[in-house]
Design a protein around this nucleic acid. Sequence first.
RNA 1: AGCGGGGUGGGGUAGCCAGGAUAUCCCGUCGGGCUCAUAACCCGAAGACCAAUAGUUCAAAUCUAUUCCCCGCUACCA
Length: 682
Amino acid sequence: MVERKKVFIGAAWPYANGPLHLGHIAGCLLPADIYARYCRLMGYDTLFVSGSDMHGTPIMVTADRLGLTPEEVAEKNHASILKTIEDLGISYDLYTKTHTEHHFQVVQEIFLGLLEKGWIDRKTDVAPYCPVCGKFMPDRYIEGTCPFCKFGEARGDQCDGCGKVLDASELLLPRCRICGSSPEFRETEHFYLLLSKLEPMVREFVDLRKDEWRTNTRNNTENFLREGLRDRAITRDLTWGVPIPLEGFEDKRIYVWFEAVCGYLSASKLHSKIVQRPGLWEDYWKDPECRHYYFLAKDNIPFHTIIWPAILAGYGGLNLPYDIPSNEFLQWDGSQFSKSRGHGITVNDFLEDYPVDPLRFYLSLNMPEKGDSNFDLGEFVQKNNTELLGALGNYLHRVVTFIKNNFGEVPRRGELTPDDVKMLTTAEELYRSALSSMEKVRLKEGITILMSLVNEGNRYFNGQAPWKLIKEDMQRCSTVLNVALSVGKIIMYGMYPYIPHAAARWFAMMGTTGPEDNEWNEALVPFREGMKLGMPSPLFSRLEVDTAKEEQTSNGAVKTVETENKKEEENVEQISFEEFMKLDLRVGTILSVEDHPNADRLYVLKVDIGEEEPRTLVAGLKRFYKKEEMQGKSTIIAANLKPANMRGVVSNGMLLAAESNEVVGLLTVDPDRELPPGSKIH
RNA sequence: AGCGGGGUGGGGUAGCCAGGAUAUCCCGUCGGGCUCAUAACCCGAAGACCAAUAGUUCAAAUCUAUUCCCCGCUACCA
């Protein structure tokens, strides 16, 4: 007997700093699920896992702001993500999380393994330590004078003045950004993953596999390798994360980017435990025939093509990735989903208004496999109504209701005409071709092929016109309907990975069970003649854009931890008149507007505020104003703002502008009054 | 600025890696058919110098070079 093909499928671990939005779904969860369902249908021995990534600084920051513990924040979001996964019908064998004893153990095992083999080394470094705050400071929390250009506000990792990458210890006159006190440089010992030593193995792996990867996966990775790999610190002076399994490191944790990817392995092992087959995970991780697929968005590529393979190769004895189908981003209303800006919509919110399978269907058609794609509500509704319902749903429904009304059971197939044969052959061909697209993880192509089969079905049905045959030639009518129903069966087998809920409902209606594992072939076997049919009811319903809702969502009603928090911030604190008067607001006339030499979104302005020399200001208005539009305008300037270096140009003050929903307008001075530059505002 | 992706009929897209004869599909527009089906389905028509230029080739949307534009990431958005 031929051994079953084995497949491990991992979907990138969502970061538990907020609920999932549609972008996450389109980029990793959904494609991974479709692929997993496809694999099971093909009879592959499949393991499909993921989990929530719970550690790291951003979660700590959120926790601080909300007055919660990091664990509370992460758990809350984990719960929300779990709900989304369930609602979407993502068929994980296990969805777990990184903040578990089990995960700790697995990570620590890998860590120690690498240490033992010499792939991890400890290096003592001096790091800035703030005696007032009582902790080591992350690079971006320290500022000082750049040793190269003497710019006074260089950050610990990079100087904004000259753009040079810095080490915090190089800074002159360093200070803590939180309390302003000057940090001490204390010795701290950290562990480094010696990527420079692992590089040959990574390179070998990449060269072996890259030809089958998507363009963006390949290019991103090669670019990374071209610059050569640098050793990276994999521990941090933090308390939120996976503990280091060695004495003397109680105040340090293994950093997320090392630890989170290990989740694929820890989740696999946990799954074995849960199903009470302790050695099961080895089938997937130690059998070299098992192919590993990782589904992720493009921002995650190097972690899966370089770092994770490096860890695995260094540790030894475990399978490296096979394919890494990375997706571009799904946009909402023309721009990036963003939790912090409240742009986009969460899946949970979306599913309150619309059913799951139309969403899965639309995202499948619109998957950002090649380039960024846009989620458009109007288009979503339209695709649902015309393709999912109009073409697919209607085909199945017209066939089944016709049969139900006239036969009540699967009609007999008599002698086949060339038309019938052609229909059946086409159906089989397209079905096989769709499966082969899915095999190559060309999921968009797969569903498109299936939709063309739906088209063929409708055409056949129209051409044969069973509603006429029923009056003229009962036997012929019966055959046509049998063929049409068989085509429907094939379609729904093919569609099952994409719209599993609808598929299951349809098969239930037929009085059978839905596609089982290893049943892809069953699609080509006609339903048993004489089998009684259940009561047909439409699979999909017509949708409408709820305009009120749309208004709300496109205005950014993403219910995230962030926005909840924002609301609190909007309860603006009252300040005294004296405090207000601290602001030196002046009328300023914009003399000139130039592009910033080193930043895409910035202008450099010369503004006359009544001083001898015009002020130089930097403003991020490029997206909202043309140069000519700003030239000559009298606007309001905050004149006593601390100067700031904006990517190499020092800005002495700030233009005042109002913003609402991405519409930005400068505040200008009443042109009917003579108010010279420098006039004080109060 | 560095990196990645992309520019295809009115809108949204497929095809490009492995170059070939009428450039795909959905919507929209126009005309027709059908009446089994959730006003769904089917047929036909109009509409694209495949971003631009140069090159390779018997042959280019597809390969090469250059340019322009869009999007994202990084940075930054005072």
